[in-house]
Amino acid sequence: MSPMKLCVPGERLCSTEDCIPGTGTYLRHGYIFASLAGYVLRKNEGEELPVMSVVKETETQLLPDVGAIVTCKVTSINPRFAKVHILYVGSTPLKDRFRGTIRKEDVRATEKDKVETYKSFRPGDIVLAKVISLGDVQSNYLLTTAENELGVVVAHSEAGAQMVPVSWCEMQCPRTHAKEFRKVARVQPEYLQA
């Protein structure tokens, strides 16, 4: 195999007639240009044209985007919403701290009006959530857990032991056998990689 092609930002890679622009590239005047310094990848993904993308050795910095599944840690709760720190986007760890908010209405899909935040999350819980909005000037990222696969994945009981889920809304402490309320996620294997 020939050594992989390298590029720097601004380099012209090819025409749009030959490839589809992927990550790390941009379009200008019908040509694909690199926007990152890295390796040029040409991948056939079943489409008519191969996808041209530029990959840096380390994962490129991802930002939480609408629709992305994020892993976050609950920092504080109040009756209206829970505040969280976003730790991962997909399976990529974030270098810097980003804050998010899960509003009461976005905790679960049914009986939204009966949701009580302190029966869904506790500070310190690790939660899987989905970004629904980047928020406006005042607010942070808005997140939701209103899906079966989303919610608390790791939680500790008052005794300090890691709890095991017993139903979609309860977790049990293995030491004291006390049950606590949580919005529990039904963890999907593909999310477990994170």
Binding site: P9, G10, G24, Y26, R28, L36, A37, Q61
Partner: peptide, 11 residues
């Protein structure tokens, strides 16, 4: 900036 992996139109 390029080393940081910030997307740029050009150097």
């Amino acid at each position: 900036l390029a080393d940081a992996g910030i997307e740029m139109y050009d150097m």
